[in-house]
Design a protein around this nucleic acid. Structure first.
Lengths: 329, 329
DNA sequence: CTGAAAGCGCTTACAG
DNA sequence: CTGAAAGCGCTTACAG
């Protein structure tokens, strides 16, 4: 079923059919009606691929994600997709591997996507620039890379880390440890830097540090390591919620300690599970809906104006107090 | 940058360029080398949309998902996407709304997808048949609809429900309740039917029933309702894990009861959180990787053979025993 | 192995 | 408002 078939049946030109399905094009009511009648009789639907080819606008946006285990990402993905769909764009989803990043992006480019959204995936500066040259806007979510033309949307990770330190110190903690995410991720660097600077404001330094690499298992190992040392922490800032759950499990089930009586735990993200009673995790909120909305606003602005001017949005951090950490008086 | 630009630079025909990028096409080594050199000099990549148009094979597969809060779906989505990518297909992702289902599918069809995978979304039989007429294969995951030509992949929900009943009865429970998911979903119907039949095998009937609609909040309400009655359950089978976490939270935090000493809880799915120590949920496994693999196998077989013969795969259910339910001696 | 040519299904100036 | 025509960037018989 093509527009030509419809044109024949409706006894109009193929152009008239095309115009009927193009919002804003000039067609008389009479023509439109005849075309619609013929179209529905034949079950005709315009071919979006042909439209994309000829118009140069595919209305395809690629979303890159590395893993969906950490609930922050499914939530963001859902928000992004819904917003994009509502604006008449389609989502091309790509799961990236630690290594094959560049290959994936090149495949995306073949599909003539009009923009790229990167969440939980890092992009080499090479690749970001390659996209910029092609004129395809890139917006990174929850991460940024220096020296690229890619835009970014993050929460104020530095301020978030600082707030955690302040909260913990004011609650009377003295031996405050940090469990890091992926060492060279921008989120980890910023949260850690803010945290240390917050401790320093109170004349303290971190009492222990181990690395969980943002994985559940990594966090469990990191916790055991931390508590195997002579100086045991009385509070831990964990670089994200996903790891914090593993940390809490190990502390309660394996070490037999109470939270927050023996150890306070604070995470980062405020994923849905953080509010589940079994954890009641005190954490720093990253508002997924707002991050998604901001990312899409930046991306579509660039898509529609065909500009690739870099923008970096930093959303405010907010501490969500629950029961996993002692509260300052 | 088009194949014509490359052809000019390489001093060959446009056909030669096309053949160089078509696996299996006959090109001499000499020609191929000149084309590749020119292509990389110009940064040329074939336009997948043009290829799709002319060849009639878009290599696009649509995945429909309704919500990603229940961790079962992100996990399945990740497995599906990776498998499809590995086979050289691209994923077009659609988040469906309870109502706008049909509209979504019609939009998908415009993009000339070669197949549709439906997870956590129900498709009207109308729509399924509409797809079948177009010759586009549809595979539903974790659900099925009677009287359609859509294939399906599910776990053996009936047998799973029966196993839960048997386990609970043999552990000595007498007042066994059920918290339902969405009433008219095939998963709920089958799990419930199997469960009741399992109870009947031991001469028992369900002692209470309320509906959680597969949501976290719905399950919390359903739990409060169940315990507000005169006969309180000493065991509950919850139609999926996602609800079971809410049930456990309410039982422990609000009702002050112990699990499994006072109440046994069994869920369904075995999502990642089920193994977290704070819950230690005994549950029926649905192996997401195997379900994804099976769904893709069925779908691609139909895509590649251009058949739409209906298939219904039912994977075996397996009880995963943890600590949320008393164990039979 | 190679090139000229037809054609996939549309949009969009252009002229009337 | 309408139609004829060009063209988006490719693949793929066809003939040599």
């Amino acid at each position: 079923m093509t527009s030509i078939d419809v044109a024949k049946l409706a006894e109009v030109s193929q152009s008239a059919v095309s115009r009927t399905f193009t919002p804003g094009a000039s067609v008389s009511d009479a023509t439109r009606e005849r075309v619609m009648a013929a179209a529905s009789e034949l079950g005709y639907r315009p071919n979006a691929l042909a439209r994309a080819m000829i118009s140069g606008r595919s209305r395809l946006i690629a979303i890159l994600v590395a893993y969906l285990e950490n609930q922050f990402y499914p939530v963001v993905l859902e928000k992004l997709s819904r917003a994009l769909q509502a604006d008449g764009y389609q989502v091309l989803l790509f799961m990236t591997d630690p290594g094959g990043q560049d290959e994936v992006v090149r495949r995306i480019l073949q599909y003539q996507v009009q923009g790229i959204l990167m969440a939980s995936a890092t992009m080499s500066s090479n690749l970001a620039n390659e996209c910029a040259e092609t004129g395809i806007p890139v917006v990174m979510l929850n991460r940024y890379v220096a020296n690229t033309s890619a835009s970014s949307v993050t929460s104020d990770n530095i301020e978030g880390g600082r707030m955690v330190a302040d909260f913990l110190v004011r609650a009377g903690h003295k031996r405050i440890a940090y469990i890091a995410g992926i060492e060279d991720s921008s989120t980890n660097r910023d949260r850690e830097a803010g945290f240390y600077s917050g401790l320093a404001d109170h004349g303290l330094v971190v009492s222990g540090r181990s690395v969980g690499n943002y994985t559940f298992e990594g966090a469990a190992l990191a916790t055991r390591e931390l508590f195997s040392r002579s100086v045991k922490p009385d509070a831990i800032f964990v670089a994200n919620d996903h790891m914090a759950f593993a940390v809490m499990d190990v502390i309660r089930s394996e070490l037999g300690l109470r939270i927050p009586e023996d150890v306070s735990i604070i995470g980062y993200d405020n994923v849905p599970e953080a509010s589940w009673n079994a954890y009641g995790l005190t954490t720093v909120e990253q508002h997924p809906e707002e991050m998604a909305r901001t990312a899409i606003k930046i991306l579509l602005e660039q898509v529609e104006n065909r500009t690739v001017a870099k923008r970096a949005a930093i959303l405010p951090a907010k501490l969500i107090v629950r029961s996993s950490a002692r509260t300052p008086d």
